[in-house]
């Protein structure tokens, strides 16, 4: 059934409603607000924002191993609970549908990625590193000075890593003999 309200009907109704109003019907519906706060009973973990270098504190709220909310850490002396839009978007970094979830491999001349196991990928990379290193390792340079380095492998990264990761990463790379070690700070 389709009932269209005509302009005439509407005006008729308007007279009726005025009558109702004069009878003193309360027009402001009152309903107590009752909704549970989504961070109630969530685990709180403090972190530092992964974007710029201000170093703002953020609290991550999680339930059942899932981040349910992130917001500025009010105790942090730099940001005092506030954040910029990037910091405020941290929830979407933690709950992100576009993340890579498994190691991916692109074979020579292939036009697509394929999922591989960690074991396979790490073993293959280790083998390639060793092959390249062994083939191109320079004990001495052209002048005959001892240099113990490999120039055929290079590395960039990363300011996105934690200090501890940066430290062991450069330690690992230098033990391999790399000299082309660079990262974001250069650009």
């Amino acid at each position: 059934m389709s009932m269209k309200l005509t302009r005439r009907d509407f005006l008729k109704l308007s007279i009726g409603s005025l009558v109702l109003s004069s009878l003193g019907i309360n027009l402001e519906p009152v309903k107590a607000y009752a909704k549970e706060l989504k961070i109630k009973e969530a685990k709180e973990t403090t972190t530092i924002c992964p974007y710029c270098s201000v170093g703002c504190g953020i609290i991550v709220y999680s339930k059942g191993g899932k981040v349910v909310n992130t917001e500025g850490d009010p105790d942090h002396p730099i940001n005092e609970g506030s954040l910029c839009p990037k910091g405020a978007s941290l929830y979407q970094l933690a709950n992100n549908p576009y993340r890579v979830l498994k190691p991916l491999y692109r074979a020579p001349y292939s036009d697509k990625w394929k999922e591989v196991s960690w074991d396979w990928a790490l073993d293959r990379i280790a083998k390639l590193v060793k092959q390249t290193r062994d083939k191109y390792f320079m004990v001495k340079n052209e002048k005959g000075q001892v240099v113990n380095r490999v120039e055929a492998i290079a590395h960039v990264g990363s300011a996105a890593l934690d200090n501890e990761e940066c430290y062991i990463l450069q330690k690992f790379l230098r033990a391999l003999g790399l000299v082309y070690i660079e990262h974001q700070a250069r650009i």
């Binding site: 530092i48 924002c49 992964p50 974007y51 710029c52 270098s53 201000v54 170093g55 990264g157 990363s158 300011a159 996105a160 890593l161 934690d162 200090n163 940066c166 430290y167 990463l169 450069q170 230098r174 000299v179 082309y180 070690i181 660079e182 990262h183 974001q184 700070a185 250069r186």
Partner: peptide, 22 residues
């Protein structure tokens, strides 16, 4: 220097550059 990344100071301090060790 208002540096660009959350840990570009640390990664520089830690020597991830050709010319400096930690």
């Amino acid at each position: 220097a208002l540096r660009g990344e959350s840990n570009v100071q640390g990664s520089t301090d830690m020597g991830l550059l050709f010319h400096t060790l930690p």
